[in-house]
């Protein structure tokens, strides 16, 4: 039996992916700086290269996991609702802030990529790079982007924000917890939010609300943008 037959069977590829993910989480516990998504992909890519099995064969099983991104997007409504209750006094102002940030994020990402001569598919992949992965993937598809490139950019936007975001905010005099949380959630989604959890409860709450809200606003703006592109 060939390697492709094994890897083409979803039972094997899904199990191997879950195992790689579990190992990546363990590694992340020990070495905080290794992002689980990067560590989880390495054994899989290594296996496919060593066994000379094309990605499409692995993805027969991989697709079963990708499919769950839809329900995961829906699930974001739960923290958005729960945190929305806690933040209700400042909600209208937070909506305005997150909405402006989302529009600025989309336009600056797209325009900069375009100015550097990127082809249209890459420009469109850059547009949703600030929002949480499942929504970014859907927006990228709608706009004619390339989802894996979007994912790579989403992860890098998260890591950049988590590493330098709070320092940049301090530099321009932003100290208020809700303002820090709103900026982090809008620019750096879940990865940025996770970096606030140990700093301040209020920052993390606002950030996870902002991350869901930015996802919603970005897909609304993208829907309008897509109408003009047709």
């Amino acid at each position: 039996m060939s390697a492709a037959q094994w890897i083409g069977n979803p039972v094997f590829s899904v199990a191997f992916t879950i195992a790689s993910y579990a190992a990546a989480l363990k590694l992340h516990q020990r070495s905080r700086w290794v992002p689980p998504i990067v560590a989880a992909c390495i054994p899989i890519v290594a296996l496919l290269l060593l066994a000379r099995v094309p990605y499409a064969v692995y993805n027969r099983g991989g697709n079963l996991l990708t499919w769950w991104l839809g329900p995961a997007t829906v699930a974001l409504g739960m923290p958005m609702y729960r945190h929305g209750i806690a933040l209700r006094a400042s909600l209208p102002r937070l909506v305005l802030i997150v909405m402006s940030g989302s529009v600025v994020g989309m336009t600056t990402a797209g325009l900069t990529a375009w100015a550097f001569g990127a082809p249209r598919a890459v420009v469109m992949s850059a547009v949703p790079k600030s929002v949480t992965t499942p929504i970014a993937i859907e927006v990228s598809r709608e706009l004619g982007g390339i989802p894996p490139i979007t994912i790579a950019m989403v992860i890098m936007a998260g890591v950049l924000g988590a590493s330098f975001g709070t320092a940049l905010l301090r530099l321009v005099g932003v100290r208020e917890d809700r303002a820090i949380g709103a900026a982090m959630g809008t620019a750096s989604h879940g990865i940025g939010t996770a970096s606030l959890v140990r700093r301040s409860e209020l920052q993390a709450t606002v950030s996870s609300w902002a991350m869901a809200a930015a996802g919603v606003f970005t897909s609304l703006v993208a829907a309008i943008l897509a109408l003009f592109l047709r």
């Binding site: 993805n59 991989g62 996991l65 991104l69 993937i137």
Partner: peptide, 8 residues
């Protein structure tokens, strides 16, 4: 876990 396959 859910976006590992696309990232690969």
């Amino acid at each position: 876990l859910l976006f590992v396959p696309l990232t690969v």
